[in-house]
Amino acid sequence: MSSTSLTAGNMIAAVLQWVLLLVLLRWFVYKPILAAMQKRRDTIAKQIGDADGLKAEAETLRREAQQLVEQARDEAKQVLASARREAEDQAQKIVEQAQREASYRQKAAIEEIAHERDLALASIRGQVADLVVFAAGKVIERSLTDQDQNRYVEEILQDAGQLQ
C-alpha cells in the first residue's frame, strides 16, 4: 500500500475521470434539469402575467355589473315615483269629479224645488181666486158683470199680494 506516492498516471487518470463525469453530467443531467427549471420559471412567470390580466378583467366586469345594478335601482325608483304620482292624480280627479257631480245634483234639486214651489203657489193662487169669486158672487148675488168681476178680483188679489 503506497497511498502517499505521487504517480503521474493516477493524477492524470483522476483528472480525466473528473472531466468525463463533468461531460456526462453536463450532457445527461444538468442540461435536462436546467431546461426543466427554466421552463418551470417561464410557466410561473406566464401564469403570474395571466393572473394579473384576469384580475384586471374581473375588476372591469365588477365595475360594469355595479354600474348596471345602480342603473336598475335608479330606474326602479323612477318607475315607483311616477306610479305613485299617477295614482295620486287619479285619486284627485275622482274626488273632484265626485264633488262636481254632487254640487250639480244639489243645484238641480234646489232649482226643481223652487220650480215646484212656484207651480204650487200659482195653483193655490188660482184656486183661492176661484174660491173668493165664488164666495163673493154668493154674497153679492150677480150684482156684477164678468168684467167688473174680473177687475175686482184683480184688486183683491193685489191687496192679497201686498198682504203677503
Binding site: 506516492s5 504517480t7 503521474a8 487518470a13
Partner: peptide, 14 residues
C-alpha cells in the same frame, strides 16, 4: 512520498 512518472496504482483508478 515519492514521485513516479511510470508507476500506476489500480485501486484508486477502479
Amino acid at each position: 512520498m515519492n514521485f513516479s512518472l511510470t508507476g500506476f496504482e489500480w485501486p484508486p483508478f477502479w
